[in-house]
Every structure is written in structure tokens, then in C-alpha cells.
Design a protein around this nucleic acid. Structure first.
Lengths: 219, 219, 219, 219
DNA sequence: GATGAATGAGTGTTCATTCAT
DNA sequence: GATGAATGAACACTCATTCAT
């Protein structure tokens, strides 16, 4: 069945000609550069179009509105990070569990390097809108699942456990990025992140509930 | 010549009279309500002044600009949370280490309840600006220090360790708030947070470095 | 009961200070001038603000959007016309029925004089939007009713009759304005308008249905 | 050198081939559909091209600009209406004067039915531009002339009289269309329209000037 | 001290139109 | 002849901020 001019949620026009594909790439690149250069406040559609070397009209032929552009940029970053993590896992020679965890952690940290400011801005922007889960979700669950299966004696993690582990890890990394901590790419920081993951999984395997008391949480 | 009234960074006028203090309080309350009601996009200075029942001119007599208002609001929230944590610790009957950690975790989670939307907006807003460290810092280090001292056999934590532990915990809680996770105030979630903290501290005490290999992190 | 800051449909702010009232008047005057000078295409909010000598922001403090401004202008014209008709009726010395009809017709035609271009633009603009009835309605029904009561032997007009008579009269006048007919203010034209009204009313009084045949209208 | 294809005012290219004629028809049909579906605001050249299934470039090969397209559409409607009136007159079995008038009135009202929204939009659009006379003119004078000749005892109408009669009739119908009056196609409405025309013509035949007073109209 | 009218730079977005392919 | 990617002037509208009253 011929789909008559597919219009996905993000884009207005599906690029058919080579020129169009280049244009989209140029716009995204321009967006990243603007973000890198001036942060979220500088991120205006006109500035992006300018930097990308296209007219504002062209930008709007490929992105329905400003937030669609931002979303597309965030997706691009996410995908790249995911790919980096996958690649790191495949290329890893240390097949111990710890080795795998370390590979993942390092890939993520590295992904946030270079264009750090743009990353920061993308993250900020994404948060400033409402779209947190969908974007951070994939990578987080990927981590959780990747770290899960090979561990002998480790029952499948519950949803809260996946959530806490992935968000804790990502939260620490993101904070280091946003706060521009100097130790971001240090071995010591990496060690602590690995420790965080491993100790939590170890505790889960030990199975000791943190408390047996039946206290309620209600305030 | 008398310095024409001391002007701290955030505020324009130091409220001296009771009425002025009330006005500031009204503005902050209005700001919180606007944020709660319409999120960050609705947070305009005029809207806040309207809601607070003061004129826009009055608002600017107490806050140098919009971001000062936002900063003051964030501070207010922070202080309240800090106070809640302190109160929880003092009121706690379970003096075990785990009991103390749990009290802290619960106090923070509870602090994010009620006016959750406003909290979320404050956090978003604070992130959307540049001001991350200063605001999250106090509470984070408070946690780390509070959890630190009474643990026998635990050497003083290094800066990366304080950072990782505090940001991981806050990151998990913040993610639950921002993503509006239903289990936010559940016992299961609290358990996992406590487990995260305790297992990490246990691992530190055990002292095993996560890896002895001398791999570098550089890409 | 104190109405707390009444916000009518058209306006944003109710002018309280003298300055504000002047501003509103200036904006409406500017709007009329822009319309007069360049017609509907020139009628941009910025142009109006410029001409009125106020900033665009000020314009938007008193008019919610462009169409509200247009509506207000139309209302002003309508009211003026209505007042002119009323005044003409009161000042009329010829109390015959025809005299009264003629006074009405003349008042309306005269109302469209001076600033004819602005009138035309207002009418065009009003039509280009959807708002026809509400604006033209008052004046039309006023005419119909004013012409109605004193006629002996004339039963109350049905809705279709009021409609046809008022729209026919207004339609002829409006067409003359829009087409800029040279005879607009001529005695001959006025005569024909009066004849149109009187002959129709006479026919109604005579009561002869135009046709007794029971043909249906369906196509 | 052959004149590079004749370029009349409205069109760019005179369609010579069957395909070209079809293309023009498709564009006009698309234009009507867009107007019907979304009114004047939706009437953009791109939307019309899309709906017509041609590229925007093709549209501009046949229509010099947007208003030319609108004008062509208005002409098409006009011609159709005129044809309908002619057909109604020829098919009419009631050869009385009233019968003929009624046939005309009904044909016009019916012409405005079906695709009423598009008609309304066309009328609005035509008015919103400057082009009133040329379009409404033909049909109006046609009516006046059609109603004129067979009336015994009726001198040729003066220009003001033709104007008033035609515009009054069209004005009443147009108002009913624009205001979306429910009685538009009712017998009662038709009766009143017929009465309007007949009574006016009767009054003309009677020859009584509406007033002998020598008042001037000047204000 | 308080008010709120006024400001205007700046934003996102549209759409008629062109022209290289 | 046809296409559709690209253009960019123009527009409606917002909102942080100032300052005369």
C-alpha cells in the first residue's frame, strides 16, 4: 500500500532528494552549534537557520516547530550514545561482569564529552520541556538490561530496581556534566560509578531486604 | 555617606518592616502558585505579581529580575527540605545507621510531595538556567555528611565518593518526580533508595577497589 | 459587589487612568487612519501602533488581538451610525412616514461619507472575518422597527420580511460605498432607496401574497 | 518572431492541450475544495496545489498569483450562476412576469446552495480584495435587464434604479448566505424577495416620485 | 513605597513566490 | 512542461523591565 506522503510527528517533509537530506543534517548541525555556543537562551529558530546556512523557511519545512527540532536533536544524541555503548560492549575484551559494566559506564561518560556544552544544553532543554522519560528511558533500560542477564544468581530486577539503578547512574553522570566537574573523565570517578552499580547489584543478589519493619511511608 | 541601603545579590531591598516581609512572602507564594498551576511557561513576572496581589513594580522593588525571583524560590524550597531532613533525623527513634538513612530518604521524598508540580517546575527552571550546583549542593553534602560520621570503620569519603553518592540518590528521586512515577512514595521505592546508599557505603568500607587494572580512561 | 478587574471580551485592560483612556482613543484613531490610508492589507498591528504613536506592547494591553481591535473599530462606527440615525429622526420636521424613512436613509448614507475608505475597509474587514450579523444586525433591525410602528394598517413584520427589507436597503448602500459609485450622495439615489422601502411596505400592507401557487423550492 | 505565447491578464499560459485544461480544472476544483473545507484562512497556494494534486510550480504556471486564482474561481462561479439563471428562464412554464422573476430569484438562491461554504468564502475573498463590481456586476445587470423588457408600461430604468434593484436583491441573498440564515431556501424567503422586486417595479411604473420636495442631500 | 501604563526588542511562524533540477 | 526545495519579508504577539505619577 503506497503511503501517500508520510508525515511523521517530528518532520514536515520527508526528504526525498539528496539535497534535502543534506539540508536536514545542516540544520541539526547548526542547532548543535548554536546550543554549544550560547546555550538554551541563544537557541532561537532564526539563529539555528542562520548558523545552518539555510533560510528560516527551509527550517520550518523540515521541523514543525522549535520543540520538534529540539526533539530531533535529542534523539540524535541518544542514538549516538546508544550506539557508542553497544560498540563498547562488542569491542570489550574483558568479559567479566565488572568489565562489562565498566565498558558501559565509560562509553556513556565519553559520549558526554566533546560538545559537552551542547549536550548540557540538550539535556537542559529536554528537561525544560516535559520530555524526560522517553529520551532518557531507552538508554537507561538498555544499561539495566545489559548489566542484568549474565549475572548468575541474580533474579530479574523489579521495575523500581531498574529505575533506581539506571537513574542513579545517569543522575551522577549528568550532574557531573552539568556542574562541569573536573573529575568527569577521571579514573577515580569512573571507579566510583562502577562501584555504585556493582555494590547495588551485589546487594540485590544477597537478597537481604534493607529493612523488615512494616513502617508505612505516609507522612 | 551612608551606603544607600545594602543591596545583596538577589534582592533589591532588604525588607525591614513587617509589611515588606509580608510582601516578599506573598510574592514567593504567588510564584509557587503560578509555577504549580501552569509550569515554567506560565511563570512570567506579570503573572506572579498578579497572583501575589501586588503590582509588577512592587515585585521589582524586591527582586532584581526574574531569575533572582526564581533563585529565591529555589532557596526557599531547599531550606524547607533541609529543615525537614534535620527534623526527621532528630525525631527518629531508630538510631541504627539504616534507620538514619531511611529517615533522610523519606524526608527528601516527602519534601517533593504536595505541590509536586511546583517542585518539578522549580527544578526544571533551576536546571534551565545555569544554577545547578549551588542549589543541589547543600542538600547533597548534608546527606553525605549526615550518613558519614556514625559509621564505624568507614574512612572519610573522598570528593568523588560524596559526589557520586549524593547525586545518585538525588538523581533517582528527581527522576521519579519529573517522570511522575506512581511508585514515588511507595515503600518499595524507598527500600531501593536505602539499598542504594547502604550497599555503596558497605562497599566503600570493604575497601575493595572496583578494579586494580591500570587502564586509562582517555578515549 | 466589587468586580475585581473586569476583563471584557474585547479588551485586556479596562482603562482606569485618564492616560489610558486617551491611549485607547489614540489606538482606535490610528487604526482608522491606517485603514483609510492603505486599506485592509496595510492594517497590521505594528502599523496601527506606529500611527497611533504608541508601542506595539501598549496596543496589546488594550486589545487582545488584531481582530479585537477591528471589532472595536467596527463597533465604534456602528454606534456612531446608530446615533446619527437617532439624531436625524429626532431632528426631523417632516413627520410623514415617508419623511421619516427618508431621514433614516439619509443618515445612513451620510454616515458612510467622510472617511469613506476607512468605512469600506471596516466593512470589508468585518466581512472577511465571520462577524456579519452581530454588527450589521443592530442597525438593520433599528431601521426595520423604526419604520414599522407608525404605519397604520401594517401588521407586524415577520422575520423574513424584516430581514429582506433591512438587508436589501443596507446592501444597496453598501454596494454603492464599496463600488465607490459617484451617485452615492445624490438625490436620485436617495429617492430610489426610499422608493424601495416604501413600495415594499406598501405591498405588505396590501397583503397580496406574491403568488398563491404551491410550488416547492427544492432543487 | 512569434509572440511568446499570448499572456492574458489572469493567466500565464493559455492551455492548449487537453492535459493542460485538465490541470487548470483540477487546480480550480482544488481551490474550491480548500475554500469549502477551511474557509479563507486555509486558502493558501500550497494548500490548493496539494489538494489539486499538482506541484506548486505547476499552479504558478497557470495562475500569475494568488489573486488571479481567486479571480478565476469567482468567474467560474459567476458563469455557472448566470448559466443557471438562463436555463431557469428558458425552462420556465409560467410566462407571467412574476413567474419569470420568481424563476430568476430561485435560480440565484439555488446557485448559492451546495458548496455554500465555498461560495461564502469566495464572496468574502472577493470582497476582501477590491474586486466587487466586476464580479457582481454581470449577474446583477442581467437580472435587471431580464426583468425589464417584458413589462408593459415600464419605461427603461435609469442607472440608479438598476443599481438599487439589483444590489438590493443580491444584498438580501448574500446576507442570508453569509449569515447562514436557516430560511435561505424557504418558500417564505423566496416570496419576500419576489415581493421586493415586484413592488419596486410596480412603484416605478406608477411613476410617482417618492417626494417632490427639493431638499438637497448635502450634509 | 506602591502603582500600572508604557515600552520595544525579540520570538516563533507563515506563505506567496522563484528557479535549479 | 513539471517539480518541490528553498527563500525571506512580513506578521502577530510576548514579556521582562522602566519610570512618571
Amino acid at each position: 500500500m503506497a503511503r501517500t506522503r508520510q508525515l511523521p510527528e517530528n518532520k514536515r517533509r520527508i526528504p526525498r532528494q539528496a539535497r534535502a537530506t543534506e539540508t536536514v543534517a545542516a540544520i541539526l548541525e547548526g542547532a548543535a552549534q548554536v546550543l554549544e555556543g550560547g546555550g538554551l537562551p541563544a537557541f532561537t529558530t532564526n539563529a539555528v537557520a542562520d548558523r545552518a546556512g539555510v533560510s528560516i523557511g527551509t527550517l520550518y519545512q523540515y521541523f514543525a516547530d522549535k520543540s520538534a527540532l529540539l526533539r530531533a536533536l535529542a534523539e540524535r544524541e541518544m542514538t549516538a550514545t546508544l550506539a557508542a555503548v553497544g560498540k563498547a560492549l562488542r569491542g570489550e575484551t574483558d568479559f567479566t561482569f565488572e568489565g562489562r559494566v565498566r565498558a558501559i559506564v565509560r562509553a556513556i561518560v565519553n559520549a558526554f564529552h566533546g560538545r559537552q556544552r551542547a549536550r548540557k544544553a540538550v539535556v537542559q532543554a529536554v528537561m525544560a520541556q516535559g520530555m524526560t522519560v522517553e529520551m532518557l528511558g531507552p538508554i537507561a533500560s538498555f544499561i539495566a538490561q545489559a548489566g542484568e542477564e549474565p549475572r548468575p544468581g541474580l533474579a530479574r530486577l523489579g521495575p523500581e530496581q531498574v529505575f533506581v539503578l539506571s537513574r542513579a547512574l545517569m543522575g551522577a553522570i549528568r550532574a557531573a556534566v552539568l556542574e562541569e566537574q573536573p573529575f568527569l573523565r577521571s579514573r577515580a570517578f569512573e571507579d566510583e560509578l562502577v562501584r555504585l552499580v556493582l555494590s547495588y547489584l551485589d546487594a540485590l543478589r544477597a537478597g537481604t531486604p534493607p529493612s523488615s519493619a512494616g513502617q508505612t511511608t505516609a507522612s
